[in-house]
Design a protein around this nucleic acid. Structure first.
Lengths: 224, 224
DNA sequence: ACCTGAACACCGTTCAAGT
DNA sequence: ACCTGAACACCGTTCAAGT
């Protein structure tokens, strides 16, 4: 948001605005949801909002800022779940919640991977995970690192699931992993060859909650 | 690679090629390395190879294919490390190796996240991890899931480290996480507030090998 | 202060034609 | 078979001018 268009600032002189920053962001968010991040362009948003492309630049600094603004308030639309007592379970529930929320609004992950977290309403999740990890005996530093690792697993599950979905939708998709295994590879790559038979079913059975449970236990050092 | 340009196919008629597919891929790879994925365009590659943009389409199907071809052979340039005896250690060493290799050629991760694995020389790594996980007592299916989770951690570490590097290089970077914490947040987000003081140092101390060790132990079920 | 119009410097890709 | 030229349908952003 540019300096002069910041909400709450009194506008006493000059031409009254014809389009509001919120309108722009709403349109961008709708395109994001309906057609994905690659369908969003300044020109497209401008057209749908009924203005020239350059009008947008009075409300947002550039395209990146517009995309980041679409995230604002998203976390608030999902109710904060009630968490269990046990700190280990609190971590797990929060992590699974992060994944669940983000897989309901798939476009968020696309925007998220190109910028920073801007939504303060989402910060209770790292806070909760770090706090619970400390309650489990980790130092604050180790707790932070553990949070990052958990986030990487959540992020990876979302990103690669999205990539799979896209590929499945692609009409003329190129040959990919299991297809490029030849007979000769069978001896060198026996495990992959064996698994490639029902690759898609196996992939579908990947259970994030289960994996996160194992990861959390590992990070908390609950091992013999 | 288009049907008619496939290497090994005898070309007995027609105009001799002026540019080879390999030239195109080499130029693309150089731009990738020197300026990043967003600097690669069909027009730019064509110019540097001394041809019109459309000449490229005789050797590759589209831009995506060109990018995927740049990965071909990358894994072979890194020697396969000697692995320890213990299967748990083999998993860890392989995972750390994946991370080390990919952080030496940072552009690979950008290309990788938009497509599939095309380099057969890289497949020994999932094979090794899955095989060792089975040796540790996991079923093949659980071993595959464990591999995916490990890959997510490696991928996340690389992607977010790259995002940080980019942001650090950006001259007019926007305010991001620790900066947007206000005094009022301190009570609701005490852990994050406390950690935000030396955020950058903490981030720099994130040790992938250490995290992977914990994750692997969790995935192998080595807990009390 | 807010918006328009024209322009700059790009994209990926298709299609018809040349050698 | 391989390559060119022109064209289509786009991009993000700057700059000068209008109300």
């Amino acid at each position: 948001m540019t300096e002069n268009a910041r909400p709450g600032r009194k506008r006493t002189v000059g031409r009254p605005p014809r389009i509001a920053a919120e309108q722009i962001v709403d349109v961008a968010r709708r395109i994001l949801q309906e057609e994905g991040v690659e369908a969003v362009s300044m020109r497209r948003v401008a057209k749908e909002v009924g203005a020239t492309p350059m009008a947008l630049y009075h409300h947002v600094r550039d395209k990146d800022e517009l995309l980041l603004l679409t995230l604002r308030g998203m976390a608030a639309t999902f109710p904060r779940p009630s968490l269990p007592e046990d700190p280990r379970d609190r971590i797990l529930t929060t992590a699974v919640h992060m994944h669940a929320v983000l897989s309901e609004v798939v476009w968020v992950i696309d925007v998220l991977s190109l910028g920073d977290l801007t939504d303060k309403n989402a910060l209770w999740m790292p806070e909760e995970i770090i706090d619970s990890a400390i309650a489990c005996g980790l130092t604050p530093e180790r707790a932070l690192h553990a949070y990052r690792t958990i986030w990487y697993v959540v992020h990876g599950a979302l990103v690669f699931h999205r990539a799979d979905t896209r590929r499945a939708a692609d009409p003329d998709r190129r040959p990919f992993f299991p297809a490029l295994l030849t007979e000769e590879d069978a001896s060198e790559l026996p495990r992959l060859t064996a698994l490639s038979a029902d690759w898609d079913e196996l992939k579908a059975r990947y259970d994030v909650a289960e994996q996160l449970a194992a990861v959390v236990d590992g990070l908390l050092g609950k091992r013999g």
